[in-house]
């Protein structure tokens, strides 16, 4: 019962390691290296990497920028709440506000065009969860995250909030149109 007794061989660190154990350690090590290289490889050659462009901001600053963007680019409003649908200029900047409990405004994008979408929260943490694509990004108050996105398919997409943000969390559903 030696796992619960002091090692019977006092100089246990001088015992040779069995070949098969070495082989398994080597496999585990090499596999770790492969996984390490894979992440770097994807940064170089992959097409889905989370942007590193981030600025410190405040809710007021971010809201002001977003309001300006909405005022300049709104094409129509939708639903009883008159939520603006804002066409993001191709290759340009779009702003998406996360707040209790809405994603604001509705964005309209074109397939194959690349956009810089600025994300920030006005209050708590929120979770940007684009469905049914299933891309998930944490949205944190005080940080403006500029994510470059290129939609690959037309359709109507939902933005679910997947970070708990209080009692209305489940009703925090946003929308993106891709034409």
């Amino acid at each position: 019962m030696s796992a619960i007794l002091p090692p019977s061989e006092r100089l246990w660190w001088k015992q040779p390691i069995d070949k098969i154990e070495w082989a398994w350690i080597a496999i585990a090590f090499v596999w770790g290296m492969v996984m390490f290289v894979m992440m770097i490889y994807w940064h170089i050659n992959g097409k889905q990497n989370l942007s590193n462009e981030v600025y410190k901001t405040s809710p007021e600053l971010f809201a002001a920028k977003a309001e300006k963007f909405i005022a300049e680019n709104t094409v129509r409003t939708e639903t009883d709440q008159q939520i603006p649908v804002v066409k993001v200029p191709a290759g340009g900047d779009g702003y998406l506000i996360a707040r209790l409990w809405a994603w604001y405004p509705i964005l309209e994008l074109e397939k194959g065009k690349t956009y810089k979408i600025h994300l920030s929260s006005m209050d708590y943490n929120h979770g940007f969860s684009l469905q049914p694509v299933n891309i998930n990004i944490q949205v944190i108050p005080g940080y403006e995250h500029v994510v470059k996105m290129t939609p690959t398919k037309e359709g109507t997409y939902a933005i679910v909030c997947n970070e708990f943000c209080g009692i209305g969390h489940h009703s925090m559903l946003g929308r993106i149109y891709v034409k």
């Binding site: 097409k47 889905q48 990497n49 942007s51 994510v147 470059k148 290129t150 690959t152």
Partner: peptide, 8 residues
Amino acid sequence: LSEVWLLS
């Protein structure tokens, strides 16, 4: 992952 929208 390679099948979702392009992100950078």
